[in-house]
Amino acid sequence: MKEFVVYTVLRIVLFLASFGIVVGIMALAFDGSYNLFWAVVLAFLISGVGSFFILDRQREAFARRVETRAAKAAAAFEERKAREDTD
């Protein structure tokens, strides 16, 4: 669960940072005005690409945790299924 929270918080921070940068650049380029819709779209794109490269280690840790939990759940299921077959 910790890996999920860390990854999610970092994604949110990366999006907010991207949004701030995009709004700043748009405000400078368009004399203080910007389109909020396009600022959000660009921030999503930039943060998505950035998270692919920047947050790779956190994503891998989260994936390992999920894989471990899934393997434990599958093993427990198989054990219960085997016990049921012997009864």
Rank of each mutant, 00 (worst) to 15 (best):
Phe62Leu: 15
Leu10Phe: 13
Phe62Ala: 10
Met1Glu: 06
Phe52Leu: 13
Val41Ile: 15
Val40Gln: 04
Gly20Val: 03
Val66Trp: 05
Ala75Ile: 12
Val9Trp: 00
Ser18Asn: 05
Val9Tyr: 04
Lys72His: 06
Val40Leu: 15
Asp31Phe: 15
Trp38Ile: 15
Leu16Met: 04
Arg59Asp: 07
Ala61Ile: 10
Val66Glu: 05
Asp31Thr: 07
Ala71Cys: 05
Arg11Cys: 13
Ala82Phe: 07
Phe37Pro: 08
Asn35Phe: 02
Ala27Gln: 10
Thr8Leu: 13
Glu3Ser: 11
Gly20His: 04
Ala74His: 09
Ala17Gly: 01
Leu45Cys: 12
Ala70His: 13
Arg59Pro: 09
Phe53Gly: 00
Thr8Val: 10
Val6Lys: 07
Val6Gly: 03
Ala76Phe: 08
Val22Arg: 04
Tyr7Val: 13
Val40Met: 05
Met1Thr: 09
Arg65Asn: 11
Val5Trp: 06
Ile25Met: 03
Gln58Ala: 14
Ile21Asn: 00
Val40Tyr: 03
Thr8Asp: 10
Val41Trp: 10
Asp87Tyr: 11
Asp87Gly: 10
Arg65Pro: 04
Leu28His: 06
Ala43Ile: 02
Ala43Lys: 01
Ala43Asn: 00
Gly50Asn: 00
Phe37Trp: 15
Thr8Glu: 10
Phe19Gly: 06
Trp38His: 02
Arg83Gln: 12
Glu84His: 14
Ser51Met: 12
Phe15Asp: 06
Met1Ile: 03
Val22Gly: 01
Ser18Phe: 03
Arg69Tyr: 11
Ala27Asn: 03
Ala74Thr: 12
Ala74Ser: 13
Thr86His: 02
Val9Asn: 00
Phe52Thr: 11
Asp31Asn: 12
Glu78Asn: 12
Tyr34Ala: 01
Ala76Lys: 09
Gly48Tyr: 02
Ala29His: 05
Thr86Leu: 09
Glu60Pro: 06
Met26Asn: 06
Asp87Ser: 05
Leu55Phe: 02
Tyr34Asp: 05
Leu45Ile: 11
Ala71Trp: 09
Asp85Glu: 14
Phe19Trp: 04
Phe15Met: 10
Tyr7Arg: 11
Gly24Trp: 02
Trp38Leu: 04
Lys72Ile: 07
Ala27Met: 14
Ile12Ser: 02
Gln58Met: 05
Ile21Leu: 15
Gly50Gln: 01
Val66Pro: 01
Thr86Glu: 13
Leu55Cys: 03
Ile54Ala: 01
Val13His: 02
Val9Cys: 00
Gly32Met: 01
Leu10Ile: 06
Ser47Phe: 08
Tyr34Glu: 01
Ala70Asn: 11
Ala61Tyr: 04
Ala39His: 01
Ser51Val: 11
Leu28Phe: 08
Glu3Tyr: 06
Arg11Val: 10
Tyr7Lys: 08
Glu84Ala: 13
Lys81Asn: 02
Ala82Ser: 02
Ile25Arg: 00
Arg65Trp: 13
Phe15Ala: 00
Ala29Tyr: 05
Ile21Asp: 08
Ala75Pro: 06
Ala76Gln: 06
Ala63Ser: 13
Arg80Pro: 07
Glu84Val: 15
Ala71Leu: 15
Asn35Ser: 06
Glu67Ser: 10
Ala29Val: 15
Leu10Asp: 11
Arg69Gly: 11
Ile21Val: 15
